[in-house]
Design a protein around this nucleic acid. Structure first.
Lengths: 207, 207
DNA sequence: TTTTGACATGTCAACTCTGACATATTCGCG
DNA sequence: CGCGAATATGTCAGAGTTGACATGTCAAAA
């Protein structure tokens, strides 16, 4: 028997399933809309193609975690608008407080590991380009964050506070990529040790 | 026909394949040793189980990118020590300068997206714990980095400069997780907006 | 008017990755 | 002497993920 049959209450879900439940806390949506929502800002840290979303929604529906309302759609098939059920919300809430263990995967860091097997000038150009790209993305995110603060989204009581939290993580990540890539490019370019530009520690906030 | 038959020179490899080639630039190793090497420091950004490594090594050998020397092993099978071939090094060098596109996946960020669907106290405890864990890891990495600098590994000419570069990325990542998790815990705990403790920008190094 | 893009849902083959199963020696510890 | 841990290599089922294929409407731009 499969690991996720919907006949009992203690059904386990995949991370993607919980990601979809999370998206549905923002309001009902079709599979197509979920595929769009999975782009910004959560898409910076979790993505899925529609080919994965549709079957997963079917499984969530079978488990009773989402409910679909059918309408005549533009294409040959009915359009289905999904919404979270109380069971689905309970499952999401239970999953939220489980400490995650998965490690990240980063191809740019993997390439850095083999940096001195590559041509130094080409590698420096690669990381210089990455730094420039990160700087552009960073500026964009900073604007987004300012807009969100103007809307009060930095208040944990705001229904889309999560969007703001995710964006801040994106911002910090881009900052790191920018700084680290620039340091690596300078190191490879100069052929001599370059001190890492560590920022001074910010004030301690008690955690 | 499969995508990675070894009969022609322009064979494409998987990221794991290149990761193994990268590890082999540090010297010949058995599959078992590669499974260990994939732990520190590169394991913070790329991991693989032996069940994935052994078949991949067989593919790399079939493509002529690695060469195996067989010896009598402790178990029922021969022990194989792999080394990089000139073709393998060329393939690695070509891969190194291709800008990566893959996006990271982060479960802790995904959970933050749905933060206000969870119990605030429980969520604050989760992120407070993550911040504490990151602080411990950070201290460990800072010690490692200092040791590496003492060995001259911050010089891009050092054969294990890549280890140092990867460790610095790990250090920065832990710093971000620590700061962001602590901010999130404080926000959820207080129930009111908490300014994000952005560090002042370090000096510009020209990139 | 044609064509492009958005809306909308699905299947399928192939590849990636994990966890469990399977086997066998050697070395150190109690 | 027995036990566990480390060394060492493999297979296999199943879950996760991607990219291509497939279908069809509607509105806006060229």
């Amino acid at each position: 028997m499969g690991a996720r049959d919907g006949d009992d209450s203690a059904t386990a879900g995949s991370t993607l399933g919980y990601a979809l439940l999370s998206l549905l806390t923002r309001g009902p949506a079709t599979g197509y809309q979920l595929a769009s929502r999975v782009k910004a800002p959560i898409g910076h840290f979790w993505t899925a193609k529609h080919s994965q979303i549709y079957p997963e929604l079917a499984r969530l529906a079978a488990a009773g975690w989402v409910r679909a309302a059918e309408e005549a759609g533009p294409g040959p098939r009915a359009k289905k608008t999904y919404e979270l059920t109380p069971d689905g919300l309970a499952a999401l809430r239970a999953w939220l407080v489980v400490p995650p263990v998965a490690q990240p995967r980063s191809e740019i860091t993997l390439k850095a590991y083999a940096a001195n097997s590559g041509d130094p000038a080409a590698m420096a150009a690669l990381y210089g380009g990455l730094a420039a790209q990160a700087a552009r993305t960073l500026a964009e995110y900073e604007q987004d964050a300012a807009d969100m603060r103007a809307q009060g989204m930095d208040d944990p009581a705001h229904p889309r506070f999560g969007n703001y939290a995710v964006l801040l993580m994106g911002l910090e990540s881009q900052r790191v990529v920018q700084r680290w890539s620039a340091w690596l490019a300078a190191s490879l370019d100069g052929g001599a040790p370059v001190p890492y530009p560590h920022p001074p520690a910010p004030r301690d906030n008690g955690y």
